[in-house]
């Protein structure tokens, strides 16, 4: 039983790896623009195929599914950051990638690398909080969907989300790690 229950996760991880090229293409396309900086939606990186792949795999256990979704989100963000770095190395000018934090009428932008650094830091302190942020923010899932995909009760998802975004906001506000292009 033990081996059987791990198989789907490994299989999904393998399939996710196969999406890498595609993710790179998405990242390339984002960087192909002419601007000195690129502005993206957080969900621009939510690779459809990869996510559908995970969501549709009914053999996955709840924990695996949450883990894989977060992994997918993180991988896609890193790929883009990696591409930015490479573009910079190759042509000695890296565009800045800003992502949009969803807001009302105001557009709020954050440097993608800063966001990644903040999420990585949060993950060190609480894997669970980081997981919720990936689900809600990067993948654009609702509270209910997040609860369903992770098995964490809705109420807890809400609380974690509120605390996590305060934490991130505080972290970014502190700003010592933040880069200005």
């Amino acid at each position: 039983m033990e081996t059987r229950s791990r198989e789907p996760a490994r299989e999904a991880e393998r399939l996710l790896t196969q999406c890498y090229d595609d993710m790179r293409r998405v990242a390339r396309r984002i960087l192909a623009g002419d601007g000195m900086a690129a502005q993206i939606q957080p969900t621009d990186l939510a690779h459809d195929a990869a996510i559908r792949l995970i969501l549709s795999n009914e053999e996955l256990s709840i924990e695996d599914r949450g883990h894989l979704l977060a992994l997918a989100a993180r991988t896609m963000r890193r790929i883009l950051i990696d591409e930015v770095r490479k573009a910079g190395a190759a042509k000695r000018r890296a565009p800045t990638v800003l992502t949009e934090w969803p807001g009302g009428s105001a557009t709020t932008l954050v440097d993608l690398s800063d966001l990644d650094a903040a999420l990585t830091a949060l993950q060190v302190y609480s894997e669970r909080h980081a997981l919720i942020v990936e689900m809600r923010f990067t993948l654009g899932l609702t509270v209910e969907e997040t609860a369903k995909q992770t098995g964490i009760p809705e109420r807890t998802v809400k609380r974690h989300w509120q605390a996590a975004r305060a934490w991130l906001h505080d972290y970014l506000k502190a700003g010592e790690h933040v880069s200005v292009a």
């Binding site: 969803p102 807001g103 923010f137 509270v143 509120q162 605390a163 906001h169």
Partner: peptide
């Protein structure tokens, strides 16, 4: 204390309601 202060700001910066939220 810091997190509670950030909570005030983050209401604006990271709204609870998301596109397509229930």
């Amino acid at each position: 204390t810091a997190l509670k202060a950030a909570m005030q700001d983050s209401e604006i910066v990271l709204p609870t309601q998301f596109p397509g939220g229930l």
